[in-house]
Structure formats: C-alpha cells, structure tokens
C-alpha cells in the first residue's frame, strides 16, 4: 500500500468537508461537515504513525476524538439555545453582531 493513497483519501474528505462548511446554512449540517474534516486529519495522523513506526500519532488521534466529542456537545448545546431564542438555526439569520 502506498503512503499517498491514504493521504489522498484524507485530502478528498477534507475538501468535501470544507465545501460543506461553506455551502450549508443549517447549523447542525455545518457541524457534520466539521466532523468530516476532523476525521480526515485522524486518517493523516495514523498514516504517518504507521510510516514512521511510532505511536505518537495514535495518541494524538485519540485526543482529537475526545476534543471532537466535547466540541459536538457544546456546539449542539449552542444550537439548541439559538433555536429556543430565535426559532431557527439558519446561520444567515444570526446577524445581530454585524456592524
């Protein structure tokens, strides 16, 4: 197996995630696109861990999984609060801080 086949898979997933963050207006769907980006980073870390024969990449991948779980918890709490106050989670409608 080539190093590049895993790295290219991660790059494709990353770009799809970036497209999702740009294209989506619904806050929950944007968080899903962020999950795609985080997973592509994990694939990269584990590929390099195998290439270099070290376990550091595994540790970082586990930390990223934990941080992603925390991020989703707080993010969905925020989305819930926004929905309760404004009855919508469309990100275009959250423009109070625009100057």
């Amino acid at each position: 197996m080539f190093v590049n086949q895993f790295l290219f898979l991660a790059a494709i997933l990353f770009c799809i995630g970036v497209y999702g963050v740009i294209a989506r207006k619904n806050a929950v769907l944007m968080l899903m696109a962020i999950e795609l980006i985080l997973n592509s980073v994990n694939i990269n870390l584990l590929t390099f861990a195998l290439r270099n024969g070290s376990t550091d990449g595994h540790v970082f991948a586990l930390y990223i999984i934990a941080v992603a779980a925390a991020e989703v918890g707080v993010g969905l709490g925020l989305v819930l609060l926004v929905y309760r106050n404004k009855k919508t989670i469309s990100l275009d409608d959250l423009s109070e801080m625009r100057g």
């Binding site: 790295l7 770009c15 970036v18 294209a23 195998l50």
Partner: peptide
C-alpha cells in the same frame, strides 16, 4: 462558491503530496 474553493485546496494538497511522497510505500 464552495466548489472552486474545495477544488483549489484539493489540487494544492495533491501537488504537495505527489511531490513529497511520490510512490513511497508503507512498511
């Protein structure tokens, strides 16, 4: 607008990956 952004990022990353790792194999 997201399609060209994603494509440009993919081309940039792809060129960097090909020039860095070429056909290097995993152990």
């Amino acid at each position: 607008l997201g399609i060209p952004v994603g494509l440009v990022m993919f081309v940039a990353m792809g060129l960097a990956l090909i020039s860095s790792f070429g056909d290097e194999k995993l152990p």
